[in-house]
């Protein structure tokens, strides 16, 4: 456990100093802060539009950070030969991989917390919501964090056998598909015209692919008043899902990485 933590904390230290990431983070914060002025677009749904747009910026920025942060993680270690000094120590390859992943997750957490704080602050300044409402609005970023953890696992998995460029497009693609997976499934499932074969294929595909859309739970936050029963249970499920899926990807990564010549 100790080597994993050492690798993770070092990774965080490195991540929060990477200029590219800081620039993306800065742009994200900048975008967030211009959103309140765009909310004139809708007279009555100002709050809804403001929150949903902020969420979208938060999600997009986090995803970009997650991908850029993780795709270079292992290739960089190899290129700089730091991996040799690490692997020549009593560190198993899987420990290295897990350490890197945890570092990425921690760094992402930090950045998401930062952006969410800015978002909540802006929301507070411009809308003066009740504390309960504020708390409700602050809930979604936590689920985005889980989503980004899953995305980081996808990237780490790919980085065990692809180049960063290929990985970038693969991960973006998978994330893109994953974010529309549930809507897509829902469309097919609710389309009475779709054949049963089509429906079961849709069910399998959405079951196999990482369903990033699970973490998009903003609807009742944007549109208050909706009553959702057993929501806590759902939250537990999606936390579990993120952990299971990430673990699966990491294990698959370990299998590949263990045999890889670095």
């Amino acid at each position: 456990m100790r080597p994993i933590m050492a690798i993770a904390t070092t990774t965080v230290g490195e991540a929060i100093r990477r200029r590219v990431l800081l620039i993306i983070l800065f742009i994200g914060v900048l975008l967030l802060s211009i959103i309140p002025s765009l909310s004139v677009l809708t007279a009555r749904s100002e709050q809804s539009t403001m929150i949903s747009t902020m969420y979208a910026v938060l999600r997009g920025t986090s995803a970009l950070i997650a991908i850029i942060l993780t795709i270079y993680m292992i290739p960089n270690e190899i290129e700089r030969r730091t991996i040799y000094t690490i692997l020549s120590k009593p560190v198993m390859r899987w420990q290295f991989l897990v350490g890197k992943f945890m570092g990425a997750v921690l760094a992402l957490g930090l950045m998401i917390v930062l952006m969410s704080s800015v978002m909540v602050l802006l929301f507070y300044i411009f809308q003066q919501p009740s504390p309960e409402r504020l708390l409700e609005v602050a809930r979604q970023p936590f689920f985005y964090f889980l989503e980004m953890m899953l995305l980081a696992a996808v990237c780490i998995f790919f980085s065990t056998f692809t180049t960063p460029l290929v990985n970038f497009f693969l991960s973006i693609g998978i994330w893109g598909v994953g974010t529309v997976l549930s809507p897509l499934y829902s469309s097919i499932a609710s389309n009475s015209g779709a054949s049963p074969i089509m429906q079961s294929v849709a069910k399998f595909v959405t079951g196999a692919m990482p369903a990033f859309s699970n973490y998009d739970v903003k609807n009742p936050i944007i549109n208050p008043g909706q009553v959702i029963e057993n929501e806590q249970k759902y939250f537990i499920y999606i936390v579990l899902y993120a952990i299971l899926y990430s673990a699966g990807l990491l294990v698959a990564g370990m299998v590949i990485f263990d045999k890889r010549e670095v």
Partner: peptide, 25 residues
């Protein structure tokens, strides 16, 4: 132990931090 050819270390770290990191391993 192993000292690779022209190794790079995490540039943001100080010498002491490097030792702490590798020590932790």
């Amino acid at each position: 132990s192993y000292l690779p050819e022209r190794p790079y270390y995490y540039e943001h770290m100080t010498g002491l931090e490097i030792l702490r990191f590798y020590g932790a391993l």
